[in-house]
């Protein structure tokens, strides 16, 4: 058995007095690509944010590379791509400036040396944004912006990549670039935990899928095939506004 890179055991979290995670078990082994699936509001983002210590957990144990998360300090081993929001800084910043902050985990006292600048350029190359390095991030499309955020996560050359809906609102051209980038990372042995709405172009990469519903894991195993094809006629889906637990998941593989 390979060493677990991410391990959650019985993790519970309340947000605003409402239970959002209700005892989650999730393990990601070295070299694995695990997709975290589930409807809107099922707790996917909360789960990954608890891994990086952004969400207070009420109970349970979280380990990163075998170390309790609260004692974990090797942040340069982790690259994180947050769920894209409109929250950009209030001051213009170039693509390079944003990606450089991803290198800080490897820089002593925030001083970037030659090797660090080279790593930033490599990360930009990986996502095909090297030609936009000096442009303001405000001038980018949604897909290009997402590529920049992924380059920022790759700048520290992480062993573990955590991404929250990297494909949401991304144009097809950028989706292809991202799928290619990710394939390359995975082939070099990077461990990946990604939150997804649909498997989409990443489907061939995924080793295992964990499905959340209402803060509980309802599936942990091979990726459910139907998810990638649910635009086809006749497929079933649980509507996000359906009352909790009113309908069983009918995606064939899960039952």
């Amino acid at each position: 058995m390979t060493e677990p890179v991410v391990s959650l055991r019985g993790v519970r979290a309340d947000l605003g007095s409402r239970p959002v995670l209700r005892g989650i078990d999730l393990t990601v082994h070295r070299g694995e690509v695990v997709a975290l699936l589930g409807a809107n509001g099922s707790g996917k983002s909360t789960a990954v944010r608890s891994v990086i210590g952004q969400v207070q957990t009420g109970a349970g144990a979280i380990e990163l590379f075998g170390t309790d998360r609260r004692r974990f300090r090797d942040w340069h081993r982790v690259g994180y791509v947050p769920q894209r929001t409109t929250a950009a800084g209030g001051v213009p910043a170039t693509v390079t400036e944003v990606v450089s902050s991803g290198r800080l985990s490897r820089a002593r006292f925030g001083v970037l040396r030659k090797a660090d600048h080279a790593a930033v350029r490599r990360a930009l190359d990986l996502v095909g944004m090297a030609d936009r390095a000096k442009d303001s991030v405000d001038a980018l499309s949604g897909g290009q912006h997402q590529r920049v955020l992924i380059a920022r996560a790759l700048a520290c050359e992480p062993e573990l990549l955590i991404m929250d809906e990297p494909m949401a609102g991304v144009d097809l051209a950028s989706q292809e670039v991202l799928a290619h980038t990710l394939t390359e990372q995975v082939s070099q042995g990077t461990t990946v935990l990604l939150v997804l709405h649909e498997l989409g172009p990443l489907e061939p990469l995924i080793d295992r899928a964990v499905v959340l519903r209402d803060g509980c894991v309802v599936h942990d195993g091979p990726p459910p095939k139907a998810v990638g094809q649910h635009a086809l006629p006749g497929h079933d889906h649980v509507h996000p506004h359906a009352p909790a637990g009113a309908e069983p998941i009918r995606t064939g593989l899960l039952s």
């Binding site: 990086i52 340069h76 690259g79 910043a93 902050s101 970037l112």
Partner: peptide, 21 residues
């Protein structure tokens, strides 16, 4: 002196935390 750190924290607090700042 701390412009890179302050930039990162002011730009994206959540990401800054994951860089160990």
């Amino acid at each position: 002196g701390l412009r890179r750190q302050l930039f990162a924290v002011s730009q994206d607090e959540e990401f800054a935390r994951v860089t160990g700042l």
